[in-house]
């Protein structure tokens, strides 16, 4: 009876094989609360494949500032410039953590850069973040399944499990991942989280945008979408009647480095 409350989801020799072959989230000796005793929140937002459309026409410096600040403060992303060590500002920048940030078209879409680019596109600020790839190279690289893809398409980090090998960072062709070169609390005011309801990270682990999984779980939209004044729309790419699919049907959208076959779930309207 005691074992009823929590149990080893996979155990024994067969499980080693299953775990290894299936590439599932489970591993030897990892405890899960029995799925009979757990459930998601009633209001949870679900999708078969989460995706995002960024309408670059609606992006400007002000909106971008709102978005990046909201994301970074709500997720306790440290400000590298406030690190006490290292002293040199250039080296402080080396320890930068970013989940969503601004890039020029030439960088965001390198190497597929068009000659004689329209003035507008040339000067449009682009927002880049984790693409939540359909076929994520980072997940393939991770030796501990600390990075894994959920059934709803979100590529998530399990910070408890990350060994800090940074293989995922070499694997990501979008530069979407950051490494905690020092305790991130060194870069938070008074070493306290800017959002106490969300954890910080620890030194030595990799992090990235989590598509606000913690928000979707309680039925809310991602922070970036909320403050984007319509520039960011998230939704279910797997549902052909969803708003996001309609947007993609009616507009010209591009994704970053589509030739690599990673299947980005973040689309840009240009």
């Amino acid at each position: 009876m005691k074992n009823r409350r929590e149990f080893l989801k996979t155990a024994g020799a067969t499980a080693v094989g299953v775990s290894a072959l299936s590439g599932s989230a489970f591993a030897i000796g990892e405890y899960f609360i029995s799925s009979k005793e757990t459930k998601p929140h009633a209001e949870e937002k679900t999708a078969t494949r989460w995706g995002m459309v960024i309408n670059t026409k609606k992006l400007n410096e002000e909106v971008i500032h709102e978005i990046t600040t909201a994301c970074h403060t709500k997720h306790n992303v440290p400000d590298c410039m406030t690190f006490a060590e290292p002293k040199d500002p250039k080296r402080k920048k080396h320890h930068e953590i970013k989940w969503i940030w601004e890039e020029h078209y030439h960088n965001a879409f390198a190497p597929d850069v068009v000659e004689y680019l329209s003035k507008k596109l040339e000067h449009t600020p682009f927002l880049v973040l984790c693409n939540q790839c359909q076929n994520p190279p980072c997940v393939q690289a991770c030796p501990t399944k600390a990075t894994f893809k959920r059934p709803d398409g979100i590529v998530l980090m399990d910070f408890h499990r990350c060994i800090g090998c940074r293989f995922c960072m070499a694997a990501c062709p979008y530069g979407s991942r950051s490494f905690n070169f020092q305790d991130p609390r060194n870069g938070l005011p008074d070493r306290l989280p800017t959002n106490p309801a969300f954890p910080t990270r620890m030194k030595g682990v990799v992090e990235k945008c989590n598509f606000c999984a913690e928000r979707l779980a309680i039925g809310k939209k991602p922070y970036c979408e909320e403050v984007s004044k319509g520039a960011i729309i998230t939704g279910d790419l797997g549902d052909e009647h969803s708003e996001i699919r309609k947007l993609l049907e009616e507009n010209n959208a591009i994704t970053r480095k589509s030739s690599l076959g990673t299947g980005p779930s973040v689309f840009y309207l240009v």
Binding site: V16, S19, A20, L21, G23, A27, I28, G29, E30, Q140, A141, C142, P143, T144, K145, A146, R161, C165, F167
Partner: peptide, 9 residues
């Protein structure tokens, strides 16, 4: 513990 055969590492 979390042996992952598709990871080269």
């Amino acid at each position: 513990i979390n042996a992952t055969p598709y990871s080269m590492l």
